[in-house]
């Protein structure tokens, strides 16, 4: 009996006792949990704060349609740069009278392309990418995909450019 009592008294001081291990584990879990809660409680507002303009531009880029006032007066054989949502786009009035609109963001590295009126091609100065001005197809250079095409509707007072869904 006496021996047993002594054992009970000395047992908890030994680091290898199961009670001690579980207590340590409980404390560890608690501390890690509290740290995680604090990191989350600080990290979430900081992330939303830094991400705020991203949210705003995501909303802006969700635009499906843009109306370009007086763009119907665009001279034959020339192009107009406009903003579709948040990124640049091209409206071209071709010599044959047709109208084409497409994204002006090169599919290679994201540079802004331009309409070469002489060569009647769309070119990118960054890495020499060339696109077909009528279809947006990538003709030569590094671009992997054609430029994104938009629908064009020419009215009496404006041009309406719509995203093809």
């Amino acid at each position: 009996m006496k021996d047993e009592q002594e054992m009970v008294l000395t047992d908890p001081s030994s680091p290898s006792s199961p009670e001690d291990v579980s207590r340590r584990k409980f404390l560890q879990t608690g501390v890690f949990g509290a740290c995680a809660v604090y990191i989350g409680a600080i990290g979430y507002p900081v992330f939303r704060y830094l991400n705020s303009p991203v949210e705003a531009s995501q909303l802006a880029s969700a635009v499906k349609e843009v109306t370009l006032d007086k763009a119907n007066e665009l001279a034959v054989g020339t192009a107009l740069m406009f903003k579709f949502g948040t990124s640049p786009a091209l409206l071209i009035h071709h010599a044959d009278g047709s109208w084409v609109a497409m994204s002006a963001v090169c599919t290679h590295m994201g540079c802004t392309v331009k309409f070469d009126e002489g060569a009647k091609k769309i070119t990118c100065a960054c890495h020499g990418g060339v696109f077909d001005a009528a279809t947006g197809e990538n003709i030569s250079g590094p671009p992997p995909r054609p430029l994104e095409r938009y629908d064009v509707k020419v009215n009496d007072a404006n041009v309406v450019v719509t995203k093809i869904s």
Partner: peptide
């Protein structure tokens, strides 16, 4: 007033 949580920071 506009930036998310800007008031808090």
């Amino acid at each position: 007033y506009q930036i998310q949580f800007g008031w808090l920071i």
